[in-house]
Structures are given as C-alpha cells and as structure tokens.
C-alpha cells in the first residue's frame, strides 16, 4: 500500500474527525464548519459520529426547560398555518408537468441585481426587472427541474431549464453572514466555477439569483471575504445537476 497516500488521507480524516465534537456543539467558525460538513457528506463513519454526538447534546439542555408564553404559541401556530397555505404541496414530485405557481420571494430581484453590482458589473436599474423576469421564466419553464439541498437552516434550490439554457439559484432561511463576509453563488462549469455574484439574503434569509449558464453541471454557494472572490474560498454547499 502507498504509505504516503494512506497517511495523507488518514491525516485529513483524523483532523476532521477531531472537529466533529465541536461541530456537534456548533462551536466551529463558519469555514471550519463547512469543512466538516463537506467531509460528513463523504464519510459515513464521521456522519455516524456526528449524529450520535448530536444525540448527546440533547442531554446538555435537560433541566433548562422553560415554558414559553402562550401568546408565542398562538403566533407560531398562526405563522405555520399561513405558511402551509402559501406552499400548498411542497413535497410533490419535483418533475414539473406544468408550470407551477411559485411564491415570489420578496426583494429577490433587487438582491440579484446587487449581486451583479458587487461583482463589478454595472447594472442599470431597469435591468432588475429584466433579471426578475428571466428568473420567473426559468422557474415556469416546462422542462424546469429542481435540485434541492440544505445547509444549516437554509433550503437551497436550483431550478434549471435546459431549453432556456439557464438556471436559477434560490435560498431560503440562509443564516445572517458574519461581518466582513459575503455569500457568493457559483455555476459549476466543466472547467471550473464561474461566479454568479454575491447572495445577499433579505431579513428572512431569502435570495435568488440567475446562474444563466446552460452548460453548468451544478451550482454552489461559498463563504467569501466581503465583496466576493474570483475563485471560491470556502464552499458551503454544492448541488449537481444530475
């Protein structure tokens, strides 16, 4: 066996395994946490460890029970029931047979536009609505296909239409980014990632942006120094169009 290869691999695994406990306690900073999550995606052993340590953390808050006010219960049940009405059947099969009506994420177009501005492309105001129209067109395309994943609290959806040669990346509930950092969206092309601009989630953590890359093989979101980077620094989550 190849000594070097094995020890290198084991070293990486051991390093990451040693971070799993801190990960289960949410005691890592975002870049370390993303590294562990990437490792968990490919290492069943560490995933099992993470799951079992998460189970252990349940005991850490035993004895801290505090009944929330009844008014909060009312607010939450109301919010959930409103949410239910807004997303009629979220668990339907993903292959669209007809264009599905979608909730337009408030402020989404502004975010997409600001993302372009932030990456150095000067975008005139009227373009915003054009980008928003393009996004809606992709979402409603007959051959639109959804790819979904989650990262922390966020639900990440890419919707791709081969006929339009375009794809849209949507995020919901993305945690607020720490100061000095930005989220950046990427199209995964065969020869490497291409920036799709910064993702600036609104107060609810929602954002959407056009990937506009017909030949893209996937999409990704990374954590970058404020203003974004030429190449992804820390990939938080990736989706493959396959």
């Amino acid at each position: 066996m190849s000594e070097t290869g094995a020890s290198l691999r084991d070293h990486g695994h051991e390093n990451l395994e040693s971070l799993v406990a801190a990960y289960a306690l949410d005691a890592l900073d975002p870049s370390e946490s993303a590294e562990v999550e990437a490792h968990l995606a490919t290492c069943p052993e560490c995933r099992e460890l993470a799951d079992s340590l998460r189970e252990t953390t349940v005991d850490l808050s035993q004895g801290l029970e505090s009944t929330p006010p009844a008014a909060l219960r009312d607010r939450i049940l109301e919010a959930v029931s409103a949410d239910q009405d807004a997303h009629e059947t979220p668990e339907e099969p993903r292959l669209p047979r007809r264009p599905r009506r979608r909730t337009v994420l408030a402020g989404g177009f502004a975010l997409a536009a600001s993302a372009l501005v932030a990456t150095g492309l000067v975008v005139a105001r009227p373009w915003r609505s054009q980008e928003d129209k393009d996004i809606d067109e992709v979402l409603a395309a007959d051959d639109a296909r959804e790819y979904t994943t989650t990262w922390r609290s966020a639900r990440i959806t890419a919707v791709r239409s081969p006929s339009l040669g375009s794809a849209v990346l949507k995020v919901e509930d993305l945690p607020a980014v720490t100061a000095g950092k930005d989220y950046q969206a990427w199209s995964k092309m065969s020869d490497g990632p291409v920036s799709a601009g910064l993702l600036r989630p609104d107060d609810d953590g929602n954002a959407r942006t056009l990937l506009s890359a017909g030949s893209a093989e996937g999409a990704a979101i990374s954590l970058e120094p404020a203003g974004g980077s030429e190449q992804p620094t820390t990939v938080l989550v990736a989706l493959d169009f396959s």
């Binding site: 799951d51 079992s52 998460r54 189970e55 953390t57 349940v58 929330p68 909060l72 607010r75 939450i76 919010a79 959930v80 949410d83 239910q84 997303h87 979220p90 668990e91 989650t150 609290s153 639900r155 919901e172 509930d173």
Partner: peptide
C-alpha cells in the same frame, strides 16, 4: 423559537429517524 418552529414545519420531511431522535 418562532423561527425554529417555522423551520421544523418546513423541513420536517428532511427528518430521517434512522439518524437520530426527533428531539435531537
């Protein structure tokens, strides 16, 4: 707490009982 329960509601289908308890 309100955000958490809205998330619980929205992501419930992502819960995999083979990986751990509902409370965890």
């Amino acid at each position: 707490t309100q955000e958490v329960y809205l998330e619980v509601f929205r992501q419930a289908s992502g819960f995999d009982p083979s990986r751990g308890s509902a409370l965890a």
